[in-house]
Amino acid sequence: MTAISIAGATKRFDGTAAVDDVSLEIAEGEFVALLGPSGCGKTTLLRLIAGFETLSAGAIRFGEQLVAGEGMHVPPEKRNVAIVFQSYALWPHMTVAENVGYALRVRGLGKAEMARKVGEALAAVELSGFEARRPAELSGGQRQRVALARCLAMDPDVILLDEPLANLDVHLRAAMEETFRAFHARTGATMVYVTHDQAEAMAMADRIAVMEKGRILQVADPATLYAEPAGEGVARFVGNGHVVDCMALGRAGDGRSRVSLHGSEALVRAAGGAPSSGAARLALKPEGLALGDGGFAAKVRKAVFKGAHTLYEIEPDMAPGVLLPVTSAERIAIGDIVRVVVRDGWVLPSAAATTKSLAEAA
């Protein structure tokens, strides 16, 4: 396996940057997810790593080897990269064993050695005994495991996964998430996983790079990304978050920040680069708000039953037009007036502090 170093990677199509000056260090054996909405550049970045696209600027290295940039472009077939696609990309006329062993046959591997590698790869994804079946005879989850087995048999330096669970139903996705985790633990492979689904990224990746408009907004482990977004884009995209205006009133003895929000005061967490006084921006998530005594007054505008709880959208009396999410097991009618307490929040860093933090993380 190998580390991946991306320095200032840029890819333009007709003058528009799909990937814009992206730098990212991926350690050997690390599982990194590229997360973002459609059109953010994550798949283009994956294709640059694979060698399917050429760089407009910047450089990409696998370990010490330059594979793209500075007048160099190593073709995909010479990068020892394996790719798992959303569409599985299995040959329909081949058996499972033939699909898994195809790349090995192209490499000229002997029949006995190829059969051994195919058998080991299928056993690793729990598909022993499926060697003679055709893709049409398999479920979606089984087809995706065949694609994984094909990767495993190739002994690649890097494994790239492009929205591999997008075509599966919710139950199969949960099962395949565990398959991917086990696959990474077994192989120790360097893996880059593209997805728009933050739950997938949170469940599997060691670190997540959130992308927007061709740039990386933040790179962090899932817990840090969720609790400590580096800016408003990440705060809104991850975890159904909302960002509101507040007034910072100084730091408390435990390092938290005192803020005034909609006429009430609260103690919240604050980034190192967040303002200690004056106007500030506060990131809130549904679980950070609670209905109860004290806090600020708000009107219930929407209710969505979620089973164990109901997700409400509330409009603070002092901020008409602002809608905030809050969960509760109570049944409350739309139009009711409630009191809302801030239990947790995150005062966002200034723009300058965010830029510095992102540069250090990359």
Rank of each mutant, 00 (worst) to 15 (best):
T2G: 04
A112G: 13
S23M: 10
F31V: 07
V118N: 08
N167V: 06
P229K: 05
F296L: 10
P37N: 11
A270W: 00
I334V: 14
G253Q: 13
A185C: 09
A33F: 13
L289A: 02
I60S: 00
G295W: 11
D155V: 04
L160G: 05
G239S: 03
A112C: 15
M211H: 08
L168V: 11
A359H: 06
A308R: 09
V340H: 12
I6N: 04
L358R: 05
P325V: 11
E98P: 11
S257L: 15
R258Y: 13
D336H: 14
P325S: 14
A351Q: 12
K213R: 15
M1T: 05
A50P: 04
Q198I: 06
L267C: 12
L358W: 05
V347M: 14
E137N: 10
E200K: 01
V106L: 15
S87M: 00
T310A: 07
D197S: 01
A362Y: 01
D169V: 07
L66F: 02
A132T: 13
E177F: 09
G8F: 07
A274G: 03
G188P: 10
L127G: 09
V19Y: 06
R256G: 15
R256E: 13
V304Y: 12
T190D: 02
L324E: 14
V259N: 15
S139N: 07
Y226L: 12
A248L: 05
G36I: 08
T355C: 00
C246F: 10
A223E: 15
Q86W: 09
P275V: 00
R107A: 15
P349A: 13
G36W: 04
V81I: 07
E232I: 13
A68C: 02
G294A: 12
V81A: 00
A59R: 10
A252T: 13
M202P: 06
R47L: 10
E137H: 09
G63T: 01
P275F: 00
A308L: 05
V19R: 07
F130R: 06
F237Q: 03
S264V: 15
R256M: 14
T224S: 06
A280F: 05
